[in-house]
Design a protein around this nucleic acid. Sequence first.
DNA 1: CCTGGTTTCTACAACGTTGTAACCAACGTT
DNA 2: AACGTTGGTTACAACGTTGTAGAAACCAGG
Lengths: 334, 334
Amino acid sequence: MRHRLKDVAERAGVSVKTVSNVVNGYQHVRPDTRARVERAIAELNYRPNLSARNLRKGRTGVIALAVPELDIPYFAELARHVVTAAAELGWTVLIDQTGGGREQEHKAASGIGDHLIDGLILNPLALTAEDLADLDGTPLVLLGERVDHGPADHVVIDNVAAAREVTAHLVALGRRRIAAIGAQRNPEGASARLRLAGYAAALDDAGIGYDERLVAPARGWHRADGAAAMRDLLATGVRPDAVFCFNDTLALGALRALHEAGLRVPADVAVAGFDDIEDGRFSIPTLTTIAPDKERIARLAVELLANRLDGDRQAPPRELSAPYRLTPRESTTP
Amino acid sequence: MRHRLKDVAERAGVSVKTVSNVVNGYQHVRPDTRARVERAIAELNYRPNLSARNLRKGRTGVIALAVPELDIPYFAELARHVVTAAAELGWTVLIDQTGGGREQEHKAASGIGDHLIDGLILNPLALTAEDLADLDGTPLVLLGERVDHGPADHVVIDNVAAAREVTAHLVALGRRRIAAIGAQRNPEGASARLRLAGYAAALDDAGIGYDERLVAPARGWHRADGAAAMRDLLATGVRPDAVFCFNDTLALGALRALHEAGLRVPADVAVAGFDDIEDGRFSIPTLTTIAPDKERIARLAVELLANRLDGDRQAPPRELSAPYRLTPRESTTP
DNA sequence: CCTGGTTTCTACAACGTTGTAACCAACGTT
DNA sequence: AACGTTGGTTACAACGTTGTAGAAACCAGG
């Protein structure tokens, strides 16, 4: 049922290579030969065997995207854009879920060696620079925060500036007791660390003291974690008048916990998030957030990978920055 | 930098095939030979070339999952479970976004022929039976509703019964003017059609007449579509006291539109959805929904594919059913 | 009619792996 | 001592494709 170049060649009365040439759009093929071959291809419904082609060419046309969890909307939305951007360059995307663990992230990164994929776009949560040291030259692009001076290209947004801007927005509304949710206990959560730094900087700008009791760690990045952190905050008796959550799912969880505690948003407590996921545009109230340009991030990542594949693999790593925008909504401004 | 069986063989002083045997866990290898080979493998950091292995074996170890859109949470959650279930059987999952179009779904299905993937799990929205007619025997499992008597295995949940149950739940709360959101204009949306049928059946059970003005079509399955449909309903002046949305994102959009219209949920209007996505467990109010066992669906789909791959490819298509559970929450019961 | 260049096509080898068949050695059985 | 059996290993071919080198056919200019 399945045909090979050889079958097409026999039917068209030409050599295998000529069929290959037609398939690959080689120029110097006589029109009538080409037509005969194309007819044979159509009649046999021939499809090239990609495994064989890959083996011969050393390329697979598949890139991988490794994210912590697909059912965190930010990553799902990002994945969508990466798939789209990659498709434009003729690539297929293989999506990997790392679970956010250092070990699994490392496995995803070294899985490059399988020859199954030409390159990897990795959004690490816990990976450190030394984890990347033993990679053997397959192109890698990191998303989110830089793994300090790692050997790879990366696409970032300015987490510190963004966090500072959204915190300043809360300050500008007259809030003074501004909590932060999402600090990570393990020191490796780079994004969390930077967002915390931006938060602290904005407080400093406003002459507000940093109060450790207002900074709540979160176990993960899910709604449940945000809700739990918010409940903890309320339970300790510190009464924040605003909360900056380090991502939108945490913020949505916090909204829920505030609702259950009978507090009004934004009247009693203003809430801001980070990521601009679709939920936040329809939640009650809608969610003020930092909106990173996800499409741009995806496109830049794919382009970096393409450059690496076609160009100099030894070139020094590049860092590209994607824009973001503070997007005020009901959760801070009624 | 990249090593082949041959390199390992030379270093260990054995034949290429012996190394291959060690790599594949072949029994009859002398312990000291095995040790020597394994040391050489470790020293060279050898990784098999999957393209070559695939070419030789005719299998790639990769299956594809094609869903309409990754950033619809239901599909993201499903994808997560499929990836997990597949990993247990040693498979990698390649995720495809069809966009829900008939053409693209067909392309995904026929893309099987590329030899890149061993099988496909497809969640179709618009695909018809005849679209599947020209597939050449590569295993395919359909999710969601059956494409009428198509030639493929499929995993379903009983959409009619589930929709009937959730509608009956609304009736039991004393609601009589129950709207439905999510009917599709194009006749191909099989799931929507079945859920509509269940809705109608439940009304009939309760002796409530079917009122066409209460049935709102939706363009897509996003929150924005649900909000738009709800606004349309309200604009026409029919005042429903309950709404059954054909999925959760539509319901979340409807919640938002009701909020904007100043209507209370569930006091004025009760709202129910379908899918049990994470958002619905944290929204305000939390969302009553039908919770399909997504993990089970994913597992069944992967198992069907596995059976097809290892077993009889000509066996008649099978239909497996996954359970669901009505999950009442605040949006119907305060 | 020859020369040199281009176009069109082909034979062959190679990519890295594994299945097949075969070999040799060691063993226990007749 | 001859025999079959098993364990351990190997040489070879094949999977389907494409790059290389070159042959054959064609063309133009002298």
